[in-house]
């Protein structure tokens, strides 16, 4: 904790707060009917994306999941463009052609949210392979959930990453539920990180409500990968505040589960207490960020609502580079 500068701490808080406010607002606007399609919200899991992506530069690439807004924001994708994308507007990050599940910004190293559970891990082997062949110190991070953790693609990718000794980190964000099915039931071992041994890589489990724990664990895995030490598996245990998708009544959860999590396990509250108690930051520093972020999200929603939908001609563009 103490090794992080004040600027870095403020950056981490701003990132987590931006994700939280973004998701809470999408939740509200979706309920009002302003947002089409499926959205899967990351609220509650902010410390994971932030604690990991704080180590990355634009040359490092991540692949994400259907629950990808947090990873996008943490990787530096423009929030205004993201909101417009979720609204299906021409000004969106992908000109309204991808939507919530396909936000990508390759210049920022964001290789896409992904609508296919387990779709991302094989791709990250390609990212790692590119870095290895070009001799850079770049890394690839595959974020995936406990649902994807049982997909063959994920298991194949971990094996391949070890066989090829790739600079890849496999981050399983275990929020306890694959859609409506408990991971305690669906994952065959007690600790997902134990599977790492089977793939010949180090595996660590970390408390995903604690930004500092995630930051530290990820830092070690990323540093090893950058130095040519090969892949790692990190299991981040955390919780989501909303349903699998917006509109999910979450009847598979205990009635007060989320309420209790918000009170006792909230990563933003825990972060604030830690840094203020340690006299690293003042409440006022954080309150200022809260105000700025709130204004940014307001601005994002206003712009998204005001923006035009893609012109009908856009239907036929961007299928191929040349055809």
């Amino acid at each position: 904790m103490s090794e992080l500068s004040k600027e870095k701490l403020l950056e981490a808080y701003r990132m987590m707060r931006t994700i939280r406010d973004f998701e809470e607002r999408v939740h509200d606007e979706f309920a009002k009917g302003g947002i089409p399609g499926f959205v899967h919200l990351y609220a509650g899991e902010e410390a994971s994306a932030t604690g990991i992506c704080m180590h990355l530069t634009d040359q490092d690439r991540i692949v994400s999941t259907h629950r990808g807004h947090g990873h996008c924001i943490a990787k530096g994708v423009d929030v205004i463009g993201m909101m417009a994308e979720i609204y299906g507007k021409q000004t969106g990050t992908c000109h309204g052609k991808g939507g919530s599940m396909h936000i990508a910004d390759l210049d920022k190293g964001m290789l896409g949210a992904n609508g296919i559970v387990g779709g991302g891990p094989p791709l990250i082997c390609g990212v790692g392979l590119t870095h290895k062949m070009r001799g850079t110190d770049g890394v690839g991070i595959a974020f995936f959930g406990d649902g994807a953790s049982n997909q063959g693609t994920t298991l194949e990718s971990m094996n391949l990453a070890t066989v090829w000794n790739l600079p890849c980190i496999f981050v399983v964000e275990n929020n306890g539920y694959a859609e409506a099915t408990s991971s305690e039931w669906a994952v065959s071992c007690d600790n997902y990180a134990d599977r790492a041994a089977g793939f010949g890589m180090p595996g660590t489990t970390v408390d995903g409500h604690d930004f500092f724990a995630v930051y530290e664990t990820a830092g070690e895995a990323i540093a090893r990968a950058r130095a040519g030490g090969g892949p790692s598996l990190v299991e981040v245990k955390l919780n989501r505040y909303f349903g699998h998708f917006e509109g999910d009544a979450q009847t598979y959860r205990r009635a007060d589960e989320v309420k209790q999590l918000r009170e006792e396990k909230d990563c933003l509250k825990i972060f604030r207490k830690r840094v203020v108690d340690a006299n690293l930051l003042e409440h006022s520093d954080l309150d200022k960020i809260d105000e700025e972020v709130a204004a940014l999200i307001d601005e994002a929603v206003q712009q998204a609502e005001a923006a035009s939908p893609p012109a009908v001609e856009e239907l036929l563009t961007h299928v191929y580079v040349n055809y």
């Binding site: 094989p122 390609g126 392979l129 590119t130 063959g152 194949e156 990718s157 391949l160």
Partner: peptide, 28 residues
């Protein structure tokens, strides 16, 4: 040399790796 590489029998893994590498500017 190493620009041609064997893979384990893991079609999802290496086809995906080829696709991922292509998005990074390689021509696999």
């Amino acid at each position: 040399g190493n620009r041609i590489m064997d893979t384990p029998i893991t079609e999802s893994g290496y086809i995906g790796a080829a696709v991922g590498a292509a998005t990074c500017g390689m021509r696999p």
